[in-house]
Write a protein that binds this DNA or RNA. Structure first.
Lengths: 130, 130
DNA sequence: AAATATATATGGTTAAAACATATAATGGGA
DNA sequence: TCCCATTATATGTTTTAACCATATATATTT
């Protein structure tokens, strides 16, 4: 039904014996959805495809989480949705609101900070290596 | 007793009306502790200081989480500890194990992936901006 | 003597990812 | 035509780790 977590399972093989969940994504679905919606309206399935652009293998994405996050974003007023049924399958199309754009602006700051932190992490790791 | 979250509270002010917790750190304490311990033995309080090097304000760090994570890392065999009491306060000093170094190696891969993803995030955000 | 800094630890709450499963319409191939 | 894969959305449960609060005790500074 859902071919999911194939690649992650391979990692599991390699990481056998490690009790920490390394592949757990963190705080990424919500800001990513806002980001893509800031570029234009989209429906959920489309957004799942687009998450791959950021480097996540489609197979590893929790589809349920995407839809759930979209519903929550709407409940909070960051996006708005409507049903579209032209050509076949009806789909719920999302649009970002101005509130959503403001939230994304805050996220960008966090993303930049986090990127800097990860960069420092890598630099420290590589120090004094032969 | 603990002057914590001063800076974060300022952010809260700015982010008023946003119901999403933007400042929540994610999956960072554990790998960071391993990283610093890979450079040499340390005790918990020292590690709290060092977390600041990665760009986190000391005030925002959950000290309890640091100690808890260290205990867990030891329980899982990624670090080892002993009590040291020379000059004053006794402290529990941690050392990374070879298992810990292996775990850190896996983490580095994740960190690099994540940094790339964050970079793409920023690039996409800046596309078609005036 | 009191206050602050150093140092470690644990109990409870919450958010979000991870995991599982359900539903249903559509289009292509056997 | 029937089956199956793909498209498409959704919700229930479990787990993890951050977040928040608090407790304890020694050492140093005011």
């Amino acid at each position: 039904m859902r071919r999911i977590r194939n690649i992650v399972k391979e990692l599991d093989e390699k990481e056998k014996g490690c009790t920490f969940s390394l592949q757990r994504l963190s705080r990424f679905i919500q800001p990513s959805l806002l980001l893509f919606l800031s570029k234009g309206q989209c429906h959920g399935y489309d957004l799942i495809e687009k998450l791959g652009v950021l480097g996540f293998h489609k197979e590893a994405i929790d589809i349920g989480a995407v839809y759930r996050t979209l519903r929550k974003l709407e409940k909070e007023g960051y996006v708005k949705s409507f049903w579209s049924s032209q050509k076949g399958r009806k789909r719920r199309v999302y649009r970002i609101t101005s509130r959503g754009r403001t939230l994304l602006k805050f996220w960008i700051e966090r993303v930049k900070e986090r990127k800097e932190a990860l960069n420092k992490f890598i630099i420290i790791y590589q120090e004094d290596k032969l």
